[in-house]
Write a protein that binds this DNA or RNA. Structure first.
Lengths: 218, 218
DNA sequence: CCCGCAATTATTCAAGTGTATAATAACTTC
DNA sequence: GAAGTTATTATACACTTGAATAATTGCGGG
């Protein structure tokens, strides 16, 4: 009688794990903020997109505020995880090259990602908890960049003072951020690979090491 | 009897010129978006801050949307006007120096200005009219930068192809934007003048002309 | 001086907001 | 396979939102 594959489905809903539901709600929130701004991310829209009713949001998050915070943290972790994995494990110079290159291509460069970031910015400036997350992400990214720069300089036989290294990291980070921003805000203004090319040239000029992304072949 | 300086003020309101009211409403809107995000800029709050009642908004703007567009245009014009005036009229190199320097100091670098920009971004990505304004401002800024770079290179005896010049302008613009962004988003992370210093070093490295802001002192 | 117009206020409206509470039903456990 | 837990839905509430309309009132022209 009961074929377990075919649900007769007079069931009106299914119970899912807490993790599954939390993630679904967070992803729906991110989608909506990127698409319509914080304003468009209402509890009802979020619930609809996560295929639940709005009451469930407050079952998993004590307020919408908390959901937004969780969504922000998730977004930032995703971004950093994606870039951190991109360096590979060749020479220091090639690691730096790969890192810059990956930071300036999809999926990092993406209108939705920039829209998301912008949508959160106001909350970041007011909510201390979100400020902490922001600061954390920024430092993580910049420190990683600084490590790569120092290693690359060392590899090419140049020493650099700690304070100078930090300044270089700030500058390179700024180029990357600026290009990332413009690529996301004006998606049609740049051809594919153009941002990455400009980024490599600029970072190369700033640290004094020509960076070229060779097409790895054979 | 009636001292014209002292208003006895049983008058319940005063009539002002259309220009005065429009500007007051626009400034109130910008204030609120910077402070609380687009979300916080409600017709009632805007009206309160402009010292009028909410109905007046629709007397001057056919919708809130239109008011926000006008506010965006006003903000962008203010930003470009402030930077364009900063180059001065010395040598080409010093003009470039001044431009970069001014772009990375208050009042251009300012948490409110960044918050404002971010608050508008979502609308920019959806509303064609706001997109046009955005594109226009970006191009204006970048073209100005390109002109300064080409002149500076020419002055120091180097020629540069048109396409190369454009790439340099994009890169320098990105450094400036990135530093502007970070200075506004993390106001306490940088000491006074640090952003400008890093900006001058980076732009100098990218275009190949050391830029130093000498303290002008007869 | 007062008349009329338009700038401004006062009030109302329907739709949408986040939150709270009560009712249901899917899964677990014995 | 019945009872109990609790994830989930359903409904309600108080409040805010942008917009629309009606009622004032300042002020310039005759």
């Amino acid at each position: 009688m009961d074929d377990p594959d075919v649900q007769d489905d007079n069931r009106k809903f299914t119970r899912e794990s807490a993790e599954f539901r939390r993630e679904a709600l967070i992803l729906a929130t991110l989608d909506l903020i990127a698409e319509m701004g914080v304003r468009g991310a209402t509890v009802r829209e979020i619930a609809a997109r996560a295929n639940v009713t709005q009451g469930l949001i407050r079952h998993y998050f004590s307020s919408k505020e908390e959901l937004v915070q969780a969504a922000y943290e998730h977004h930032m972790n995703t971004l950093t995880d994606q870039t951190a994995a991109s360096s590979g494990k060749g020479s220091a110079v090639s690691q730096l090259t790969n890192f810059v290159d990956a930071s300036l291509r999809p999926p990092i460069v993406d209108p939705s990602a920039v829209a998301l970031w912008a949508g959160f910015l106001n909350k970041v400036q007011h909510d201390p908890k979100m400020q902490r997350i922001h600061q954390q992400t920024y430092n993580y990214f910049r420190d990683h960049l600084e490590t790569l720069i120092v290693a690359a300089l060392h590899e090419t036989g140049r020493a650099v003072a700690a304070s100078a290294a930090k300044q270089l990291a700030i500058a390179c980070n700024a180029v990357i951020d600026g290009l990332w921003l413009e690529g996301g805000a004006l998606p049609d203004a740049f051809s594919e690979g153009q941002l990455a090319q400009i980024g490599l040239d600029s970072v190369g000029a700033i640290v004094g090491i020509p960076l070229t992304k060779e097409v790895e072949q054979s």
